[in-house]
């Protein structure tokens, strides 16, 4: 069972960097991704929107595999800044999991 964690959503919301709430899960991004990742980015954004922090962290490796090449953004009907959103999640994980805190 996965439970929506609104605290995680709040944390994401507080940043200006994340705009994937506009994602409508059409999958155009995944279809064109050169990495051929079945997770990125549609599913990932769903996890974030639903506040499923554990699921996001579970997919750490996928998050770090993104090329940031933005091919998906050319395909995105909702103009989501997918690469920036992925980068935001990397930063989140670096702080939360990798403990790369402020220096």
């Amino acid at each position: 069972m996965a439970r929506v964690n609104t605290d995680f959503i709040d944390e994401v919301r507080r940043s200006d960097g994340f705009d994937a709430t506009a994602c409508m899960h059409c999958g155009q991004c995944t279809a064109i991704c050169p990495m051929g990742l079945d997770l990125l980015p549609r599913r990932l954004f769903f996890y974030v929107g639903a506040g499923l922090e554990d699921k996001v962290i579970e997919n750490l490796e996928t998050i770090f595999s993104c090329l940031l090449c933005r091919l998906c953004e050319e395909n995105c009907p909702r103009d989501v800044h997918i690469a920036e959103d992925v980068r935001f999640l990397r930063n989140y994980i670096n702080r939360k999991v990798h403990k790369l805190a402020r220096i």
Binding site: I9, T21, A22
Partner: peptide, 10 residues
């Protein structure tokens, strides 16, 4: 609504 954070689940 979606830009203002509403989440949509089908």
């Amino acid at each position: 609504a979606s830009r203002k954070g509403s989440m949509f689940f089908r």
